Simulated scan of single mutants.
Amino acid sequence: MTNTIKKLEVTAEELDLFISALETQSKILQMQASAGGPGANERLNEVKSLLVNVSSHREVSRDPRPAQSGLWNMLRSLREAI
């Protein structure tokens, strides 16, 4: 791998797809490494490193309201029905 840095513009959906593909590749390499595949551990480390780097650029969408439990949602629905 070269250390040349280039910028690439991608949509959030494309970035999610890319991350998903890297996660799949990581799982495949884990299986190959556990079976003793030649070079699989080195390649797995490269893919995991890339996955961490790419994942750090993913925008985290935050819901303005905190996550609520099912019971809380049910109580809120009852209150709104009254």
Rank of each mutant, 00 (worst) to 15 (best):
M1I: 01
M1C: 02
T2G: 04
T2M: 06
N3A: 03
N3G: 11
N3W: 01
T4P: 05
I5L: 13
K6R: 10
K6Y: 08
K7D: 09
E9M: 11
E9N: 09
A12P: 15
A12K: 15
A12V: 13
E13M: 15
L15E: 01
L15Q: 09
L15D: 00
L15K: 08
D16W: 07
D16K: 14
L17V: 06
L17I: 04
L17Q: 09
F18L: 15
I19L: 07
I19P: 03
I19K: 05
S20Q: 15
S20G: 14
A21R: 06
A21N: 05
L22P: 01
E23C: 08
E23I: 10
E23R: 13
E23L: 04
T24K: 10
Q25K: 11
S26V: 15
S26Y: 09
K27W: 07
K27C: 03
Q32N: 11
Q32V: 06
A33K: 01
G36N: 03
G36R: 04
G37N: 03
P38H: 03
G39L: 10
A40G: 14
N41E: 09
N41R: 08
N41H: 12
E42T: 14
E42F: 14
R43L: 08
R43M: 12
R43Y: 04
R43Q: 10
R43P: 00
E46L: 07
E46H: 12
E46R: 10
V47D: 02
S49A: 11
S49H: 12
V54I: 15
S55R: 14
R58V: 11
E59N: 09
V60M: 08
V60K: 15
S61P: 00
R62H: 15
R62Y: 12
D63P: 08
P64L: 06
R65L: 14
P66L: 04
P66K: 02
Q68S: 02
S69N: 13
S69R: 12
S69H: 08
L71K: 11
W72L: 14
N73P: 02
N73A: 03
N73W: 06
N73R: 08
M74V: 07
L75D: 00
L75I: 08
R76A: 04
S77G: 10
S77T: 08
L78K: 11
L78N: 06
L78G: 05
L78A: 05
E80D: 14
I82R: 13
